[in-house]
Amino acid sequence: MDVRTLEYFVAAVECGGFTKAAARLHVTQPTLSEAIRRLERECDAPLFHRVGRGVVLSEAGAVLLTYARRVLKDMEDARQSMIALRGFQGGRVTVSAPPALSIEPLARIVGNFRRAYPDVTVVMLPTEDGALAAAAVANAASEVGLTDRPVSADLRAHPIGSNEIVVVLPPGNALSGKGPVSLEQLAGVPFISSAVGTRARNLLDESKERGIALQTAVETPHREAVIPLILEGVGAAFLPWTVSREAESRGAVVLPLLPRVAYDLLIVHRDQPLTAAAEAFVATALGSSPVGGD
Rank of each mutant, 00 (worst) to 15 (best):
E143V: 03
N173R: 13
Q215D: 03
L169S: 09
H158M: 14
V181H: 05
L183W: 08
A200Y: 00
L204T: 07
F191P: 10
L186T: 08
A213W: 03
G177V: 10
R156T: 15
Q185T: 14
V167F: 11
E206S: 14
S182R: 11
P180A: 12
E164G: 09
A213Y: 04
N163P: 14
V168K: 04
G211R: 04
A195I: 14
I160G: 10
L155P: 06
A213P: 10
N139P: 01
G172R: 00
V181Q: 08
V167M: 05
L175I: 07
L175F: 13
A141F: 10
I192G: 02
S207R: 06
I212P: 00
E206L: 13
R149D: 01
A136F: 10
P159E: 15
G145H: 00
A195M: 13
V166Q: 02
S182Q: 07
A174V: 11
T147A: 08
G172I: 03
S162Q: 14
A213D: 14
E209L: 14
P180T: 03
A200N: 01
I192F: 03
S152G: 07
K178Q: 15
L203M: 06
A157H: 05
L203E: 03
I165W: 06
A140M: 01
A141V: 13
S162M: 13
A138Q: 12
R156K: 15
R149G: 00
V137W: 01
S142R: 04
D154A: 10
I160T: 10
P171E: 07
P190M: 11
E184G: 13
E184W: 14
Q185G: 07
L175V: 13
V181G: 04
L203K: 02
P170V: 02
L155D: 07
N173K: 04
A187M: 09
G172W: 02
S193A: 13
N173W: 04
P171C: 05
N173D: 15
L186W: 09
E209W: 02
I165H: 12
Q215H: 00
P159V: 13
G145K: 01
D148W: 05
G145Y: 05
L214N: 02
N139R: 14
R199S: 14
S176E: 15
G211L: 10
A157W: 04
E164H: 07
R201E: 12
D205Y: 01
L183Q: 07
E209P: 00
K208E: 10
L186G: 09
G197F: 08
S176M: 10
A195R: 15
N163I: 10
P190E: 08
L169E: 05
G172E: 09
G177Q: 11
E143N: 00
G177E: 14
V189N: 00
V196R: 07
V166W: 02
A157D: 09
G145S: 02
A187N: 05
G211W: 02
A140C: 11
V181Y: 04
G145Q: 04
A136G: 03
L155N: 00
R201F: 06
G177H: 10
E164M: 09
D205L: 06
L183I: 08
V189Y: 02
V166S: 05
S152A: 15
